[in-house]
Amino acid sequence: MALRRGGNKMKRFFTILKIEGKLTLRGVESILFGVCMPVGIMILICLIAGNKPAYEGADYTFLQGSFGSLITVGICATSFMGLPITLADYRDKKILKHFFVTPISPLMLLLIQVVLSILLSMVSSIAIVLVAVFAFGYYMQGSIVFFCMAYLLVMISMLSLGMVIASICRSVKLANVVSSVVYFPMLFLSGATIPYEIFPKPLQNVSNVLPLTQGIKLLKGFSLGMPVNGLMTSIVIMFAVAVIGVTISVVTFRWE
């Protein structure tokens, strides 16, 4: 009986996941910003400088240096645009409130949106990997396993920041504004698109404050096979961001 009920619950979860997933795909922005744009930026960078050394005398190529950062562009789009705006919209439309008057907890709908964000980020990353490997001959110098673990950590920590935006912004309008204010600086100043190393020193200082910069340092370090010791600060910061983000969003989240 317990098993059957569990099965039912999974079936319900997947039915809703399927429908909400269709809606995500139907809203063209998610694919455009989450998948097409990251892949486009990578192709552009590869065509300009892909197989040249990252800098004079470097023992890795520009693409190898940028791979860890390019893979976060998709995470940015889902964490700072997709997730918070969708949730703010659902709150405005009383869709979250309506779940309270059904037998299912509205938490399930939140969970489904988070799962969709994760899936979309992963699709984006896989597209980037495929293009990098097959079109531009990329290979990773560092450990793929460590890189994947770091990737998950960065993703969770960025999604938790997205949840904070969703919690704090009381309307879709505000969520839109805050999303843009967070998304664009993260995209351009954290090194996700333009390499951090070529920033002038004052800009690097600004960049260092952004949580994504630390995430990118981590991914870059692992992709280039740097020792874990040197990356400890970034790892700790990423964990801290995730814990703080989840705590703030749980405490401040409003269903209506």
Binding site: N8, K11, R12, T15, I16, I19, E20, K22, L23, R26, G27, D89, Y90, K93, K94, I95, K97, H98, F99, V101, T102, P103, I104
Partner: peptide
């Protein structure tokens, strides 16, 4: 329940919202 001034997900179709709501009940 029908809540005052509630609305539906953007882009959702009639049968999809029905299916989603049906998935909430035994």
């Amino acid at each position: 329940v029908q809540l005052q001034a509630s609305s539906f997900q953007t882009n959702i179709k009639v049968y999809e919202i029905c299916e989603e709501i049906a998935a909430l009940y035994k």
